[in-house]
């Protein structure tokens, strides 16, 4: 599980720096001559990068930060959550070096430098033996509002629908509810689940169920032989490919933003985070890497 308070600090480098200070050495501090891009708090000798913003991106950014710190043991990266808007404001007024934004940027936010980190796609899944091959947006909304309660009303067999929903606060729920403009408190669920794997298992074990999970997870499980079917949305096939090229509607791009063109270690971190070196982490957290 992701850190409880949404704040993760890697303390090892700090300890290390204390050791070094004890030895009477001033530890390596690259780029300490460009303080404009570094927020130097607490420890004047060692650089620290503060990243704030969307809680969707934070777990991924945490993993990326850990890997980056392995290469730069003197560096300390502080990842804090607080929503996309905080990511924008913090990076604008210099409270953070990098902001994390999980929605598309608004027109008045064009002053920020943006770096696409990964894509996040969500698709509807049903059991593979379910004869229904597609649902219109209205049908999906009606099912999730509890107005349509039987598969026969949407072209399926005469069986009650089991609505599988995500727990409050999950980013998949956010994407799903955002796409269908469905307030989360109007959703009438029969089963509430936690992570994507549980969603896949729930749907695979229940012929009458419908759920939604990250596309990466759904595709991986379907290809591994799990009896689930990915439903297309507005006629567009649900796959990592359509999420990647931006045609799949229920998806979004996760961005990193900075106030000005990044330099020094911040630039290096952004380069690293958007490179193929972290694609395994992106996939692990069920996002889609940007090719």
């Amino acid at each position: 599980m992701y850190s409880r308070d949404g704040v993760c600090s890697i303390r090892l480098p700090l300890l290390l720096s204390l050791c070094l200070a004890g030895c009477g050495q001033s530890g390596p501090a690259p780029n300490s001559n460009s303080p404009d891009v570094l927020v130097l708090k607490q420890n004047p000798v060692h650089p620290q990068i503060t990243v704030t913003g969307a809680s969707t991106i934070a777990p991924l950014m945490n993993e990326i930060a850990k890997r980056f710190e392995l290469q730069h043991p003197e560096l300390r990266i502080d990842v804090q959550t607080g929503g996309s808007s905080r990511g924008v404001t913090d990076s604008r007024n210099g409270l953070s070096d990098i902001g994390m934004v999980s929605r598309s940027l608004k027109p008045d936010e064009s002053d920020l430098q943006r770096f696409p980190l990964a894509r996040d796609g969500v698709c509807l899944i049903v059991h593979s033996d379910n004869p229904v091959t597609s649902l219109t947006d209205e049908q999906v909304v009606s099912i999730y509002q509890g107005k349509t309660r039987n598969w026969k009303d949407v072209g399926g067999p005469d069986q009650p629908i089991t609505v599988v929903n995500k727990a409050e606060g999950r980013s998949t729920l956010e994407v799903f509810a955002g796409h269908f403009k469905l307030p989360t408190n109007e959703i009438q669920a029969d089963v509430v689940i936690g992570d994507n794997e549980q969603g896949v298992k729930t749907v695979a074990g229940n012929l009458q169920s419908i759920g939604y999970v990250s596309i990466g997870t759904a595709e991986f499980n379907r290809d591994a032989g799990v009896p689930i079917k990915l439903l297309p949305l507005a006629g567009i096939e649900a796959s990592v490919k359509t999420v990647n090229d931006g045609t799949f509607p229920m998806s979004r791009t996760l961005h990193l933003v900075t106030k000005s063109k990044p330099t020094g270690i911040v630039h290096e971190l952004i380069e690293f985070a958007t490179s193929s070196k972290v694609h395994d982490l992106v996939k692990e957290l069920s996002f889609v890497p940007i090719e």
Binding site: A167, E168, R170, S171, G194
Partner: peptide, 8 residues
């Protein structure tokens, strides 16, 4: 368990 990871 379900909500702690995402709650603020």
């Amino acid at each position: 368990a379900l909500e702690m990871g995402y709650a603020r």
